[in-house]
Amino acid sequence: MPGKHNPTLRLPRYSLIIVAATVLTLLVGWVAFRAAGPSRETSPRLVVPPPASASVVPAAVVEPVPVTSPSPSLSPSISASATPSRSKSPSPSSSPSASPSRKPSPSPSKARPSRSPSPTAATLTSRYRTTASWDTGFIGAISVTNTGSAPATWSVTVTYPSDAGVRITGAWNAKVTGATFTGETLAPGATARFGFSANKQVRGKVAPTGCTAGGTSCRIG
Rank of each mutant, 00 (worst) to 15 (best):
N146M: 04
S143W: 13
T131K: 01
A80Q: 11
S107N: 14
G140T: 10
K175P: 04
V176C: 02
S143C: 04
V166S: 00
A80K: 13
S93K: 01
S93Y: 05
T130H: 05
T125M: 01
G170H: 10
I78T: 14
E184K: 07
E184M: 14
T131A: 02
I139E: 08
V166Q: 02
T125H: 02
S149N: 11
S89G: 11
A82E: 15
F138W: 00
T123E: 02
V158T: 02
T131M: 03
A111N: 11
T180Q: 03
N173E: 14
P96K: 15
G165M: 03
S109Y: 02
N146R: 02
T123P: 01
G148Q: 03
D135F: 10
R193H: 13
G140A: 11
S91V: 15
W134G: 13
P188V: 06
P84W: 01
S85L: 12
V166C: 02
S77V: 14
A98D: 14
P117K: 08
D163F: 09
S69I: 12
T169C: 01
S149C: 15
A121K: 13
R167F: 06
S143Q: 07
A164R: 04
S105L: 11
T130A: 05
P119Q: 04
S114C: 09
S149E: 13
K88Q: 15
I168N: 03
A111R: 08
Y128F: 07
E184D: 12
V67S: 05
D163V: 06
P100H: 00
G195N: 07
S116L: 04
D135C: 08
I142T: 08
S94K: 08
S99F: 00
R86D: 11
G148A: 12
S97F: 04
A187R: 03
S149F: 00
R112H: 09
R115M: 09
R102Q: 15
A192P: 03
G195V: 11
Y128M: 07
S101K: 01
G165K: 01
T125W: 01
T83H: 08
A152M: 05
